[in-house]
Protein backbone atom coordinates (compact mmCIF):
# COMPACT_ATOMS: atom_id res chain seq x y z
CA UNK A 1 0.00 0.00 0.00
CA UNK A 2 1.29 3.42 -0.79
CA UNK A 3 -0.02 6.58 0.71
CA UNK A 4 0.66 9.70 -1.18
CA UNK A 5 0.27 13.32 -0.29
CA UNK A 6 0.03 15.49 -3.31
CA UNK A 7 -0.97 18.74 -1.74
CA UNK A 8 0.43 20.38 1.29
CA UNK A 9 -1.68 22.63 3.48
CA UNK A 10 0.40 24.99 5.49
CA UNK A 11 -1.35 26.14 8.64
CA UNK A 12 -0.50 27.31 12.07
CA UNK A 13 2.03 25.03 13.69
CA UNK A 14 0.76 23.77 17.01
CA UNK A 15 2.94 25.11 19.75
CA UNK A 16 4.27 22.53 22.05
CA UNK A 17 3.55 23.48 25.63
CA UNK A 18 3.89 21.00 28.54
CA UNK A 19 7.38 19.96 29.45
CA UNK A 20 8.26 16.53 28.16
CA UNK A 21 8.91 14.02 30.84
CA UNK A 22 9.95 11.03 28.77
CA UNK A 23 11.53 8.06 30.38
CA UNK A 24 15.26 8.34 29.86
CA UNK A 25 18.21 6.60 31.40
CA UNK A 26 19.28 9.78 33.11
CA UNK A 27 15.96 10.26 34.90
CA UNK A 28 15.85 6.62 36.02
CA UNK A 29 16.83 6.46 39.64
CA UNK A 30 18.84 3.25 39.72
CA UNK A 31 18.64 2.26 43.38
CA UNK A 32 19.90 -1.32 43.46
CA UNK A 33 19.61 -1.66 39.71
CA UNK A 34 22.74 0.17 38.61
CA UNK A 35 24.19 -2.81 36.78
CA UNK A 36 20.96 -3.43 34.89
CA UNK A 37 20.98 0.21 33.76
CA UNK A 38 24.56 -0.13 32.54
CA UNK A 39 23.67 -3.28 30.60
CA UNK A 40 20.56 -1.73 29.07
CA UNK A 41 22.48 1.33 27.96
CA UNK A 42 25.24 -0.79 26.45
CA UNK A 43 22.78 -2.93 24.50
CA UNK A 44 20.86 0.15 23.31
CA UNK A 45 24.01 1.86 22.11
CA UNK A 46 25.33 -1.17 20.26
CA UNK A 47 27.56 -2.89 22.81
CA UNK A 48 28.75 -6.47 22.61
CA UNK A 49 25.94 -8.04 24.58
CA UNK A 50 22.87 -8.03 22.42
CA UNK A 51 20.27 -9.45 24.73
CA UNK A 52 19.22 -8.16 28.12
CA UNK A 53 16.24 -9.47 30.05
CA UNK A 54 14.93 -7.52 33.04
CA UNK A 55 12.20 -8.73 35.33
CA UNK A 56 10.28 -7.56 38.32
CA UNK A 57 6.75 -6.80 39.43
CA UNK A 58 4.77 -3.99 37.87
CA UNK A 59 6.24 -0.64 38.92
CA UNK A 60 9.79 -1.89 39.28
CA UNK A 61 11.00 0.10 36.30
CA UNK A 62 11.05 -2.32 33.36
CA UNK A 63 8.85 -0.17 31.16
CA UNK A 64 10.87 2.93 31.98
CA UNK A 65 14.13 1.17 31.13
CA UNK A 66 12.87 -0.11 27.79
CA UNK A 67 11.50 3.23 26.71
CA UNK A 68 14.67 4.92 27.89
CA UNK A 69 16.65 2.45 25.81
CA UNK A 70 14.83 3.68 22.69
CA UNK A 71 15.89 7.23 23.56
CA UNK A 72 19.46 6.14 24.14
CA UNK A 73 19.52 4.25 20.85
CA UNK A 74 18.17 7.25 18.94
CA UNK A 75 20.86 9.45 20.47
CA UNK A 76 23.51 7.35 18.73
CA UNK A 77 21.53 7.08 15.50
CA UNK A 78 20.17 3.60 16.01
CA UNK A 79 16.66 2.77 14.95
CA UNK A 80 14.47 1.14 17.55
CA UNK A 81 10.99 0.06 18.46
CA UNK A 82 9.21 -0.36 21.78
CA UNK A 83 6.47 -2.97 21.75
CA UNK A 84 4.17 -3.47 24.76
CA UNK A 85 3.09 -7.05 24.09
CA UNK A 86 0.15 -6.80 26.48
CA UNK A 87 -1.38 -4.21 24.18
CA UNK A 88 -0.84 -5.98 20.89
CA UNK A 89 -1.51 -9.55 21.96
CA UNK A 90 -4.81 -9.64 20.07
CA UNK A 91 -3.13 -8.88 16.75
CA UNK A 92 -1.06 -12.06 16.81
CA UNK A 93 2.63 -12.61 16.28
CA UNK A 94 2.71 -11.09 12.80
CA UNK A 95 3.34 -7.89 14.73
CA UNK A 96 6.87 -9.23 15.12
CA UNK A 97 7.56 -9.63 11.43
CA UNK A 98 10.42 -7.71 9.92
CA UNK A 99 11.61 -6.25 13.23
CA UNK A 100 15.11 -7.50 12.48
CA UNK A 101 15.42 -4.55 10.10
CA UNK A 102 15.79 -2.33 13.18
CA UNK A 103 18.80 -2.03 15.44
CA UNK A 104 17.07 -2.35 18.79
CA UNK A 105 13.84 -4.12 19.65
CA UNK A 106 12.30 -3.67 23.12
CA UNK A 107 9.58 -6.12 24.07
CA UNK A 108 7.69 -5.17 27.21
CA UNK A 109 5.35 -7.40 29.25
CA UNK A 110 6.55 -10.65 27.72
CA UNK A 111 4.49 -12.54 30.29
CA UNK A 112 1.35 -11.37 28.49
CA UNK A 113 2.00 -13.83 25.66
CA UNK A 114 3.73 -16.64 27.58
CA UNK A 115 1.92 -19.93 27.13
CA UNK A 116 0.37 -18.91 23.80
CA UNK A 117 1.75 -21.37 21.24
CA UNK A 118 1.57 -19.01 18.24
CA UNK A 119 3.18 -16.15 20.08
CA UNK A 120 5.88 -18.35 21.52
CA UNK A 121 6.79 -19.67 18.11
CA UNK A 122 6.71 -16.15 16.69
CA UNK A 123 9.03 -14.94 19.45
CA UNK A 124 11.34 -17.89 18.92
CA UNK A 125 11.68 -17.11 15.22
CA UNK A 126 12.10 -13.40 15.97
CA UNK A 127 14.84 -14.22 18.44
CA UNK A 128 16.70 -16.21 15.80
CA UNK A 129 16.30 -13.52 13.18
CA UNK A 130 17.45 -10.77 15.55
CA UNK A 131 20.45 -12.81 16.53
CA UNK A 132 21.34 -13.54 12.93
CA UNK A 133 21.00 -9.87 12.06
CA UNK A 134 23.05 -8.68 15.03
CA UNK A 135 20.09 -6.69 16.35
CA UNK A 136 19.87 -5.90 20.06
CA UNK A 137 16.92 -7.16 22.07
CA UNK A 138 15.63 -5.95 25.42
CA UNK A 139 12.88 -7.84 27.14
CA UNK A 140 10.93 -6.98 30.29
CA UNK A 141 8.64 -9.38 32.12
CA UNK A 142 7.18 -9.93 35.56
CA UNK A 143 9.16 -13.12 36.20
CA UNK A 144 12.55 -14.58 35.30
CA UNK A 145 12.81 -16.71 32.13
CA UNK A 146 12.39 -19.97 34.02
CA UNK A 147 9.25 -18.81 35.78
CA UNK A 148 7.46 -17.46 32.76
CA UNK A 149 5.61 -20.68 31.97
CA UNK A 150 6.97 -20.71 28.47
CA UNK A 151 5.92 -23.97 26.85
CA UNK A 152 8.28 -23.94 23.89
CA UNK A 153 11.62 -25.14 25.27
CA UNK A 154 13.47 -23.60 22.31
CA UNK A 155 12.22 -20.18 23.37
CA UNK A 156 12.69 -20.78 27.10
CA UNK A 157 16.35 -21.67 26.71
CA UNK A 158 16.97 -18.66 24.49
CA UNK A 159 15.47 -16.34 27.08
CA UNK A 160 18.06 -17.56 29.58
CA UNK A 161 20.88 -16.90 27.15
CA UNK A 162 21.31 -13.20 27.69
CA UNK A 163 22.06 -11.02 30.66
CA UNK A 164 19.19 -11.47 33.09
CA UNK A 165 18.55 -8.93 35.83
CA UNK A 166 15.99 -8.80 38.55
CA UNK A 167 14.75 -5.24 39.02
CA UNK A 168 14.56 -4.35 42.67
CA UNK A 169 11.85 -1.91 43.63
CA UNK A 170 12.78 1.23 45.54
CA UNK A 171 12.47 1.62 49.28
CA UNK A 172 11.04 4.86 50.70
CA UNK A 173 14.39 6.63 50.69
CA UNK A 174 14.87 5.54 47.09
CA UNK A 175 11.40 6.76 46.13
CA UNK A 176 12.11 10.18 47.61
CA UNK A 177 15.35 10.36 45.64
CA UNK A 178 13.61 9.20 42.47
CA UNK A 179 10.92 11.87 42.91
CA UNK A 180 13.53 14.55 43.44
CA UNK A 181 15.50 13.39 40.41
CA UNK A 182 12.40 13.46 38.25
CA UNK A 183 11.41 16.87 39.62
CA UNK A 184 14.87 18.21 38.93
CA UNK A 185 14.65 16.97 35.35
CA UNK A 186 11.45 19.02 35.03
CA UNK A 187 13.14 22.05 36.47
CA UNK A 188 11.29 21.87 39.80
CA UNK A 189 13.05 22.31 43.11
CA UNK A 190 11.45 19.67 45.30
CA UNK A 191 12.74 19.55 48.86
CA UNK A 192 13.16 16.24 50.65
CA UNK A 193 10.40 17.22 53.07
CA UNK A 194 8.03 17.99 50.21
CA UNK A 195 8.90 14.70 48.50
CA UNK A 196 8.31 12.83 51.75
CA UNK A 197 5.04 14.67 52.19
CA UNK A 198 3.87 13.42 48.79
CA UNK A 199 5.14 9.92 49.42
CA UNK A 200 3.25 9.58 52.69
CA UNK A 201 -0.07 10.57 51.20
CA UNK A 202 -0.09 9.28 47.66
CA UNK A 203 -0.47 5.76 46.29
CA UNK A 204 3.06 4.47 46.41
CA UNK A 205 3.61 3.14 42.91
CA UNK A 206 6.20 5.19 41.07
CA UNK A 207 3.81 5.75 38.17
CA UNK A 208 1.25 7.32 40.55
CA UNK A 209 3.93 9.46 42.16
CA UNK A 210 5.16 10.69 38.81
CA UNK A 211 1.61 11.42 37.70
CA UNK A 212 1.19 13.65 40.77
CA UNK A 213 4.43 15.35 39.96
CA UNK A 214 3.15 16.12 36.51
CA UNK A 215 -0.01 17.66 37.97
CA UNK A 216 2.03 19.71 40.40
CA UNK A 217 4.32 20.81 37.61
CA UNK A 218 1.59 22.20 35.43
CA UNK A 219 -0.21 23.75 38.41
CA UNK A 220 2.96 25.48 39.54
CA UNK A 221 3.59 26.71 36.01
CA UNK A 222 0.21 28.32 35.71
CA UNK A 223 0.22 29.64 39.28
CA UNK A 224 3.85 30.73 38.89
CA UNK A 225 4.58 29.29 42.33
CA UNK A 226 7.22 26.96 43.69
CA UNK A 227 6.26 23.40 44.66
CA UNK A 228 6.21 23.68 48.43
CA UNK A 229 4.22 21.69 50.99
CA UNK A 230 1.48 24.35 51.24
CA UNK A 231 1.27 24.46 47.45
CA UNK A 232 1.03 20.65 47.29
CA UNK A 233 -1.74 20.66 49.95
CA UNK A 234 -3.65 23.29 48.07
CA UNK A 235 -3.25 21.75 44.63
CA UNK A 236 -3.97 18.18 45.56
CA UNK A 237 -6.60 19.00 48.17
CA UNK A 238 -4.80 17.08 50.91
Amino acid sequence: MTDTVTKAHPHQLALSVGLRDDATLSNFYPGDNALAVVAVRAAAEGGDEHFVFVWGPSGSGGTHLLQAACHAAAAVGRQSLYLPLDQVVAYGPQVLEGLESLELVCLDHLHAVAGDADWEEGLFHLFNRLRDAGCALLVAADAPPRRLRIRLPDLASRLSWGLVFQLHGLDDAGKVQALQLRAHARGIQLSEEAALYILHRSPRQMSALFALLERLDSASLSAKRRVTIPFIKETLGW
Binding site: A14, S16, R20, D22, A23, Q67, C70, A74, Q79, S80, L81, Y82, L83, P84, L99, L102, C106
Partner: peptide, 15 residues
Protein backbone atom coordinates in the same frame (compact mmCIF):
# COMPACT_ATOMS: atom_id res chain seq x y z
CA UNK B 1 7.94 13.52 19.96
CA UNK B 2 6.48 16.53 21.71
CA UNK B 3 2.96 15.84 20.58
CA UNK B 4 2.52 12.16 21.28
CA UNK B 5 2.99 10.22 24.50
CA UNK B 6 6.41 8.69 24.54
CA UNK B 7 5.11 5.14 24.41
CA UNK B 8 3.23 5.84 21.20
CA UNK B 9 6.21 7.63 19.77
CA UNK B 10 8.56 4.74 20.64
CA UNK B 11 6.21 2.12 19.26
CA UNK B 12 5.03 3.67 16.02
CA UNK B 13 7.13 6.63 14.99
CA UNK B 14 10.64 5.66 16.03
CA UNK B 15 10.85 2.52 13.92
Amino acid sequence: QEEFPSQQFNTWIRP
